[in-house]
Amino acid sequence: MIQEYLRKQQVENNDYKPVFYDLKKAQDLQSFETLLKTRPHLRINDHIDSQLKELMKIRNPTKRLTAAEYEEKVQAHLAGVSPEKYGVWVYYPWSDHVVHLVNEAEFIELRTSRNQHKITAEEIAVLSKKKIGIVGLSVGQSIALTLVMERICGELRLADFDRLELTNMNRIRCGVHNIQLPKVVIAAREIAELDPFIKVSIYQDGMTEANMDDFFTNGGVLDIFVEECDGVDIKILSRIKAKALKIPVVMEMNDRGMIDIERFDLEPDRPLMHGLIPEVDIDTLKGLTDAEKLPIFSPMLALDKASSRMKFSLGEIGKTITTWPQLASSVVLGGALVADTCRRIALDQLKSSGRYYIDFEQLIV
Rank of each mutant, 00 (worst) to 15 (best):
I119K: 03
A121L: 15
E122R: 08
E122Y: 08
E122L: 01
E123D: 06
A125W: 03
V126Q: 10
V126R: 13
S128G: 06
S128T: 01
K130C: 04
K130F: 04
K130P: 10
K131D: 02
K131M: 11
K131F: 01
I132M: 03
G133P: 03
I134Y: 01
I134S: 05
G136R: 00
S138F: 06
S138T: 04
S138A: 02
V139W: 01
V139C: 02
G140P: 01
Q141F: 05
Q141V: 01
Q141A: 08
S142C: 02
I143M: 09
I143D: 03
A144M: 06
A144K: 00
L145A: 02
L145N: 04
T146Q: 15
T146A: 13
M149W: 13
M149E: 11
E150M: 12
E150N: 14
R151I: 03
R151G: 11
I152V: 14
I152R: 12
I152S: 14
I152H: 10
C153T: 09
C153Q: 00
C153R: 07
G154P: 10
E155Y: 14
R157Y: 11
R157S: 12
R157A: 06
D160V: 04
D160G: 15
D162V: 06
L164Q: 08
L164S: 09
L164C: 10
T167D: 07
N168E: 13
N168S: 09
N168K: 05
N168T: 12
M169V: 08
M169W: 05
N170T: 15
N170S: 09
N170A: 06
C174D: 14
G175W: 07
N178G: 15
Q180M: 13
Q180L: 12
Q180V: 08
Q180A: 12
L181W: 07
L181A: 14
P182K: 14
K183T: 08
K183A: 11
V185C: 08
I186Q: 00
A187N: 15
A188S: 12
